[in-house]
Write a protein that binds this DNA or RNA. Structure first.
Length: 788
DNA sequence: GAGTTTGAAACT
DNA sequence: CAGTTTCAAACTC
């Protein structure tokens, strides 16, 4: 599907557009808006596309799934690989990055309302671009019955579109399209989404007109008529188009012939000049492709011009595109398909949309929180969602750092290099960050633009980040390793499985929902796109056993439960290990302990023996304060002492800011948690509650107080200053907290270990409540298992 | 880099 | 549900 068909279809499209017929149709038919829409979708989809498929776990309810997809988008890179196995992959990723950027811009510029749509939007795969284009075709096609060919392609595209899925509202046009050719409901859904997106954007009342006026001149491809039509109909679309062109431009500029072709093909896929010729293969020819590509280039060039004029700013990130290559690979594609489908089905639901929007907001908030309280909060994506992310974080530790960095710096870091530099200074941790700069840059691209994606990652990251940051010991080594490898694919984690075939949770990659990649030294690996079916089946199996198997192990609840007191208010115990650890010999002071690894304190749910978790003992006492934990962390104390006070103050401030600026963060979170109860079984809503990034910042802060190592500081500075917040309270909670037991039991879908093994502490009611929240958040993980 | 330790995951 | 085995990461040398 990926290449040839698309190419075939795509080529015709370009011609089609150029053709006067196209212009005429566009002017006449309501379909026109679609164009713009599709474009916008492309961006949006792209933005989401970055997210790794991993998150897309099909299990999640359709609504939820869509969310996952979004979140996953950042990692999506993997898909592109699968689809585009050829060297083009890289180019695709880059494109995606650009697209993401564009999407961000769109969101910013365009509309507040978009937020809703975006929330609904799924994270398209790497294919997002392709997909997006398809929608165009569909729309156009809708007008004309000829579109069958496009519709055929539509399935994939539809999925992507869904990802983009700006709004759930149905569009009659979409139906038409579906009727015409696409048997797939997905295509319809996509169309609908597109239409909606277009409508909303229009409604948003951006400066589209001005842009359009400018762009139209440039954009007008062959015929002036088209430009006029665009103006009338596609005000919004123009922007999207221009953006799209812009996104494409870099590709072209890069001189990747292959890439260009791919791009072109993708674009054209939906439009198929020869819709009547149902055989794409016959149509598809190198010569034709070249021609198409040329046409596309011309269009692109025109678009580029307009874009440059209008939005030179937006593409600042271009340089970073290259960086993305390595990172994206990993996203698991396998889930995407299912998720997409599900999402499509569900998309229309207003409720779902709302929920999504809420999530988005929450995610954004989270993201924002870490980054900057007021400013581009939306963009700054902190790791909030914990779903698979945790696993990812574990798997890709590199990403953690990167993500954080990204989070902290926001778009500004778009350039990889910059991000690296920026990190180093602030965070002492930054040990290896620089090496990861490329990855970070990618993430920046993706993450910054796609707050959602970042959030997803972030959710995972938090724990890892905290771990790594906190654990200077191993992390450094790893980071170095990753760094070394990292230049190419810094972010990826590598497994070393020998017997599990990377199809069990033993495999970090698999557990994280990502495909194994080259750097993995696994043997007989089945966790590859090639074996997608196997991977999916295995995942389902595992999920059937344990719906939360792929959920993040460390759940971060931002729950601001203010019950604790001053400290509590500042630092809500936000993160806990999902099931708790069972350490017996490591005293929860080594990475053997999942709690420690995740940078969270042990809780009642833990069955560990001799817990000395530096992040918080099972008993609730902070190790860091001065007990054993200190041993490890004493170093940090020195520096931290003076800073601690400042940090505390900062934290308080941050919290205040959060409440003020990040507004949505807390309220939304809460709303989510409550509103998105775990559906009967598993599906925990991916609650935004997991703000790893923020949490990390928080952690660092708390740690410092405790006297932990410096490592944390850097983060705290970066994030903490920005927004970080005192949520981390893990220690506090641990100290005091009580028992989440009750809450946990109820909350945990699995029911495993939920019950507190030992209630050493008398549960204080307030604390319980806090934990309850945590538990709720837990469910946020997407369950792969079908919803039943 | 090889070997050991550790605890989660998987199995019974 | 508990106990055992398997597994791969984490750790040590």
């Amino acid at each position: 599907m990926d290449t040839p068909e698309r190419n075939q279809i795509g080529t015709p499209k370009a011609k089609f557009e150029d053709s006067p017929v196209f212009n005429y149709i566009s002017s006449l038919s309501p379909i026109k808006p679609v164009k713009s829409v599709h474009i916008t979708q492309t961006f949006s989809s792209l933005s989401f596309a970055s997210l790794p498929s991993v998150f897309t776990s099909p299990h999640v309810s359709s609504h939820k799934e869509s969310r996952f997809l979004r979140r996953h988008n950042p990692s999506d890179p993997s898909k592109p690989e699968s689809s585009l196995e050829s060297g083009n992959k890289v180019s695709v990723n880059e494109d995606a990055a650009e697209l993401y950027i564009n999407a961000e811009e769109l969101h910013e510029n365009c509309v507040p309302g978009d937020s809703v749509g975006e929330a609904s939007a799924e994270p398209p795969c790497e294919h997002s671009k392709f997909v997006i284009e398809l929608p165009r075709n569909l729309k156009y096609d809708c007008g004309s019955p000829e579109c069958d060919a496009t519709t055929s392609c539509g399935t994939e595209a539809g999925c992507e579109l869904e990802a983009a899925g700006l709004s759930a509202s149905l569009v009659p046009y979409a139906q038409k399209t579906s009727e015409n050719g696409s048997s797939d409901g997905e295509g319809e859904a996509h169309l609908q989404n597109i239409c909606q997106s277009g409508q909303r954007r229009e409604g948003t009342g951006c400066d589209w007109e001005s842009l359009i006026s400018d762009a139209t001149d440039l954009l007008i491809f062959d015929s002036p008529n088209a430009s006029e039509a665009f103006r009338g109909i596609m005000q919004n679309p123009l922007d999207s188009v221009t953006r799209f062109c812009n996104s494409l431009m870099p590709r072209l500029s890069q001189n990747d012939i292959n890439d260009e072709q791919n791009v072109l093909v993708l674009d054209t896929v939906g439009s198929g000049e020869q819709p009547e010729t149902e055989d794409p293969s016959s149509q598809y020819g190198e010569a034709s492709q070249q021609e198409d590509t040329e046409l596309m280039q011309d269009h692109l060039n025109s678009c580029m011009v307009s874009n440059q004029i209008e939005k030179e700013d937006q593409f600042n990130c271009k340089p970073g595109l290259n960086l993305h290559r390595g990172l994206r690979r990993r996203c698991l594609d396998f889930e995407m398909a299912e998720a997409r489908r599900k999402s499509l089905d569900n998309v229309p639901n207003s409720s779902s949309l709302l929920s999504q929007s809420d999530e988005k907001i929450t995610t954004n908030d989270k993201q924002l929180v870490p980054m900057k309280p007021g400013g581009e909060s939306a963009r700054c994506i902190l790791p909030g969602i914990g779903l698979h992310l945790n696993a990812l974080a574990t798997t890709s530790k590199d990403y953690k750092t990167i993500k954080r960095e990204n989070m902290a710096y926001g778009r500004q870091l778009s350039l990889p290099n910059l991000s690296a530099s920026a990190h180093s200074p602030t965070a002492g941790q930054g040990l290896g960050h620089e090496s990861f700069s490329s990855a970070s840059s990618e993430r920046d691209m993706d993450g910054t633009e796609n707050g959602v994606q970042l959030l997803q990652d972030a959710s995972q990251e938090p724990a890892f980040l905290a771990n790594e940051e906190f654990n200077q010991n191993s992390p450094k080594k790893k980071r170095r390793k990753f760094e070394q490898a990292g230049e190419t694919e810094s972010s990826c984690k590598r497994c070393n499985c020998k017997k599990s075939k990377c199809l069990k949770l033993y495999c970090e990659c698999f557990a994280a929902g990502v495909y194994c990649i080259e750097p993995c030294s696994c043997q007989e690996c089945f966790n590859k796109p090639i074996h997608e079916d196997t991977v999916l089946a295995t995942r389902k199996q595992i999920e059937s056993r344990n719906p939360l198997a792929f959920a993040p192990k460390v759940i971060r609840t931002a729950d601001p439960v203010p019950e604790y007191g001053e400290e509590s208010s500042k630092t809500p115990a936000s993160a806990r290990h999902k099931r708790g650890c069972n350490c017996k010999k490591s005293s929860c002071l080594k990475k053997y302990c999942e709690c420690y690894q995740g940078g969270v304190g042990c809780s009642i749910s833990c069955r560990c023996e001799g817990c000395k978790n530096a992040f918080g003992r099972k008993d609730g006492s902070f190790v860091g304060t001065e007990t054993e934990a200190d041993e490890e962390e004493t170093e940090a104390c020195d520096k931290s002492v003076a800073e601690n006070h400042q940090q505390k103050n900062e934290i308080q401030k941050n919290e205040e800011q959060r409440q003020d600026s990040a507004l949505p963060s807390t309220p939304l979170r809460l709303s989510r948690q409550f509103s998105l109860p775990f559906s009967s079984k598993n599906k925990p809503p991916r609650s935004s509650t997991f703000n790893i990034g923020s949490s990390s910042g928080l952690y660092t802060i708390t740690i410092q107080k405790l006297g932990k190592p410096n490592i944390l500081r850097p983060e705290s500075k970066l994030e903490g200053h920005n927004q970080a917040v005192p949520e981390d309270e893990m220690p506090e909670i641990l100290q005091g907290d009580g028992s989440p037991s009750t809450g946990i039991k109820t909350a945990s879908p699995n029911g495993k270990r939920v019950s507190p093994p030992n209630n050493e502490f008398g549960p204080s009611p307030g604390r319980r409540a806090g934990r309850k929240l945590i538990l709720q958040s837990i469910p946020s993980f997407p369950s792969l298992t079908p919803q039943h």
